Simulated scan of single mutants.
Amino acid sequence: MKLLSLVERKKEKQIKKYIVENKESLYRFAYSYVKNKDDALDIVHDAVCKSLVNINTLKNIDSIKSWIYQIVSNCAIDYIRKNKKYVAISDDLQEEKAIGYDTYEDIDLQEALERLPEKYRIVIVLRYFEDMKIGDIAQILNENENTIKTRLYNGLSKLKIDLIDEEE
């Protein structure tokens, strides 16, 4: 076991505090990748472990949110690659409500979001459900800000078309 410097101990304390205060958001983000409760919990667990092991890679404590979300994103992608599957949604809405995780008021919206390709859905979830800025989303996904803006615009357009089609 390596000894942590004073700076690293302070970072560790802040990381732990952030994780505890935002565990539901981190879970929802992981869930948006795999659509499975247990897999999402495993991903968050792996991300927490990696964040604590790699404290030295956090250069600025003010960017802790985007740093942790990037770790969760990378863990989710690794999980999907490792399992060579994309788990289809198996939990029904009643189970989600009973657990108390994020539920959408509009079931049509939730279903339309689930039908979106992942690259659009992730950006929309981070922007509107996790209230992140475009710059933070770009950093998390290792993409250019203009790419994120384009995906957001295209994803919202697809979402709008899908919701309009459902109304008719």
Rank of each mutant, 00 (worst) to 15 (best):
A76R: 09
K23R: 12
M132L: 13
R28E: 07
K65V: 04
S73Q: 05
Y31C: 12
E167C: 09
K59A: 12
L141I: 03
L4I: 08
A76N: 06
K11G: 05
S157K: 12
D162W: 04
W67C: 01
N60K: 15
N144V: 01
E24H: 07
E167N: 14
K97H: 01
K65H: 04
L141A: 06
I80M: 15
I161S: 03
C75G: 00
V48A: 07
Y69H: 09
Y120E: 12
K119D: 01
D62R: 14
T147K: 11
S25G: 11
F129R: 12
L152E: 08
L6K: 09
I124L: 14
E21H: 11
S32P: 00
L41A: 13
Y31T: 04
E24V: 10
D62G: 13
C49Y: 08
D39Y: 13
L152V: 03
L156K: 12
E21R: 12
A98Y: 04
Y79P: 03
K82V: 03
L109F: 11
R81L: 10
K37E: 06
L126C: 03
G155Q: 00
E24I: 12
V72M: 05
Y101D: 03
V44E: 04
I161C: 05
Y27I: 10
L58A: 08
D136L: 10
R127Q: 04
N146T: 07
C49M: 13
R121A: 07
E8C: 11
V72A: 04
N83A: 14
A112E: 05
R127P: 02
T103R: 07
R121V: 02
L109M: 12
L116F: 07
E118Q: 08
H45D: 14
K2H: 08
S63H: 10
I71Y: 04
C75N: 02
Y33P: 09
L93D: 06
Q14C: 12
Q139E: 09
K10C: 09
N54R: 15
A76K: 09
I61F: 02
S157V: 01
I71G: 07
E96H: 07
A40K: 08
I99Q: 08
E143P: 00
Y86T: 14
V20Q: 08
P117Y: 11
I80V: 15
I161A: 13
K97F: 05
Q94R: 13
K10E: 08
E168P: 03
E167V: 08
K97L: 06
E96N: 08
C75W: 00
G100V: 10
T103A: 10
G135A: 06
D42R: 14
T57N: 14
V34K: 06
V44S: 03
L6M: 07
Y79G: 03
R28D: 10
A138I: 02
D108V: 11
G100Q: 09
Y69D: 07
A138W: 01
L163K: 06
D62S: 14
S90F: 05
N142G: 02
L6P: 00
H45F: 13
N146R: 14
A30K: 06
I134N: 06
E167F: 07
E166V: 10
S90Q: 14
L26D: 00
Q94H: 04
L3G: 05
N74L: 05
D62T: 12
K16N: 11
R127M: 02
E96P: 00
K23I: 15
I161F: 07
G135I: 04
E114T: 13
I55L: 15
